[in-house]
Design a protein around this nucleic acid. Structure first.
Lengths: 174, 174
DNA sequence: GGAGATTACTCTGACTTCCTACTATCTGCC
DNA sequence: GGCAGATAGTAGGAAGTCAGAGTAATCTCC
């Protein structure tokens, strides 16, 4: 990749030194936050590359996966937004794309006429299974991390998500 | 309005169960990757909110911070892109915005006429110091994580960044 | 039963990021 | 010298996200 030849040093470690030298404080937090930002960038690029043969990006894959786990293969758009933690407008856009590709279909809610359901088509269901397999083979972009690291990240970020109010910390049912 | 009412359960834990039930594999990796995605979203929102009074967003703050650490307060745009790991066109856009706000100035490189330097103005230097203090008070958006968690995330993601080729830390170049 | 608040979705617009393509300039090799 | 290839920056375009406004339908409560 031409645009980013590897630097001869870790840019975050370098930022860390500068932060300390200038007395800007919260050095550990800065390092972690910057690391998360960069990790997200790396992951998204790897994941989208793996999904590209299927004509998907991560957000659309997530929506398909969520639908495929329901009994009926259908969910209100609002519910999708809640579960995926994205803005209602983004859901509209995501479902627009999926519908244009024939992977989901909008159908009216049987009782609430305000509500639109996104329903997985047969093609959508088949595709999401293939795509999930493709993502599993690249370890969801986490190549370079060992099991301990993966577990540590998951555990530590769970606190962050809980503190951000993503979910009311109840005991996850079996 | 509530941007996202807290769910009564952890959506990632729920996804995890579904992944297992469907035999989709790479469950730990999926959980970690999704956590990182969501963490990035939380952080960016918190950080941008803290920077909003200064008219900055995170990417523009990062560029200012980088410039403020140099001896002369100036860097070629290409160097900024390398250090911040963003696309050249994103640097152009970032510097456009900073220049329009009078926080940096484009100046020609003394010897290489291809190169444009972004140079911190006095206002830019003053603003980035204030903004850094504001970010330190919110712990760079990491509220909810303890010291161990922050250290764990930083360490684990360093492996990911190294494997992605961000820096050659003694590893032989291709 | 009906007024007012709430909820669901979409449209428009702003913003950020990336990609491809292009011009200008520099470097290396003959 | 002079030309091929690399490098620096920018323009135009596509995609994704979010916020605010608007419309339609439903719910709450008197």
């Amino acid at each position: 990749m031409a645009p980013s030849d590897p630097l001869p040093f870790d840019p975050i470690a370098e930022a860390r030194r500068n932060w300390e030298a200038h007395g800007w404080g919260a050095v550990d937090a800065m390092s972690a936050a910057t690391s998360i930002t960069r990790a997200h960038q790396i992951l998204l690029k790897r994941i989208d590359a793996a999904l590209e043969p299927f004509g998907l990006v991560f957000s659309r894959f997530e929506a398909l996966a969520l639908l495929s786990f329901t009994r009926t293969g259908a969910l209100p758009l609002s519910r999708i937004g809640q579960r995926l933690q994205v803005h209602p407008t983004s859901v509209t856009n995501t479902i627009d794309r999926l519908e244009a590709d024939g992977l989901v279909a909008r159908t009216p809610h049987p009782t609430d006429r305000r509500t639109t359901l996104a329903e997985l088509t047969d093609r959508g269901r088949a595709l999401v299974t293939e795509a999930a397999a493709a993502l599993a083979t690249i370890d969801y972009g986490l190549a370079g991390m060992d099991g301990d690291g993966i577990a540590a990240v998951h555990g530590a970020l769970r606190s962050l998500r809980a503190a951000a109010g993503d979910f009311s910390d109840g005991a996850p049912a079996p």
